[in-house]
Simulated scan of single mutants.
Amino acid sequence: MSRPLLILRPEPGASRTAQAAAALGLAVDCYPLFLTTPIPWTGPEPHFVDAVMFTSANGARLAGPQLDRYRHLPAYAVGEVTAEAVRAAGFAPVHVGTRGVQELAAMIADRGHQWVLHISGRDIRTFDPGDLRVTSASVYASVESGHAADFAPHLVPGGVILIHSPRAGQRLADLVPPPVRATLHIAAISPAALEAAGGGWASGHAAARPDDAALLALAAGLCE
């Protein structure tokens, strides 16, 4: 019997990951630790930037009509899922980076851009922009959802937990006491997300690439 898989990411990502996991034959449960909600934002005048960078699909989905002001600019996205959301928002072309925001920033610079608008959530991980001049616009917030007592029944001994961000890793660490941690396995989308979850787990692993496909491939191996 395979180990159960627990998905912590907010919707709509949780359902998308759950569907892909079920297609791999995994037993799936979802308990989102955050809810995403749009927040008011103001960006620079479009003529002050020459490219737009997205590090989250939620940025493209929740930015609202103000994002239309920048649709004529080349767009860059971390991962194919984010790129799909950016295309759905009306951007073309959309260039995709597969190894995180640092690689994407280097790609943007290599293509000759200098002034970049970064569409993101309110809580973002810092990165080195190099020679880029980056203006960040926080267009959504992730609000904590759930509590320890309600979360506890979802923590099945021997189970595997997916962590999609460092913030989710930190929240998981806050909710799960050490004795319970020792019975659970962690599959994280990045080394930073794994580090944020802290120690004491039965095992902890980071995906080979920071995308859902690599994360689910890792989880499938752990669930066997």
Rank of each mutant, 00 (worst) to 15 (best):
M1A: 09
P4I: 04
G13H: 09
R16N: 02
R16D: 10
A22G: 12
A22M: 07
L24R: 13
G25L: 08
L26P: 10
V28W: 06
D29H: 14
L33V: 13
T36V: 14
T36M: 14
P38Q: 11
P40M: 02
G43E: 05
P46C: 01
P46N: 06
F48W: 13
M53T: 01
F54K: 15
S56K: 01
A60P: 12
L62N: 01
P65Q: 06
Q66F: 01
Q66E: 10
D68V: 02
R71W: 00
H72I: 01
H72N: 03
P74W: 10
Y76D: 08
E80A: 15
E80H: 07
A83F: 10
A83L: 15
A85H: 04
V86F: 15
R87E: 04
G90Y: 09
A92Q: 14
H95F: 07
V96P: 15
V101D: 10
Q102C: 03
M107C: 08
A109I: 02
G112C: 11
V116Q: 03
I119T: 06
R122S: 13
I124P: 00
R125S: 15
D131R: 15
R133S: 13
V134T: 06
A137M: 04
A141V: 10
S142R: 11
V143Q: 12
E144C: 04
E144M: 13
H147C: 06
H147G: 11
H147L: 07
F151R: 04
A152W: 00
P153A: 08
V156H: 12
I163Q: 10
H164W: 02
H164D: 03
S165K: 15
P166F: 07
G169M: 10
G169N: 14
R171E: 10
R171G: 07
L172G: 09
D174Q: 14
D174N: 09
D174A: 13
L175Y: 09
V176W: 08
V176Y: 01
P179F: 10
P179D: 14
I186P: 01
A187P: 03
A187T: 05
I189W: 13
I189P: 07
A193W: 13
A196K: 12
H205M: 01
A207W: 09
A207N: 01
P210Y: 09
A213E: 14
L216P: 05
L216Y: 04
A217K: 06
A220N: 13
C223A: 11
C223R: 12
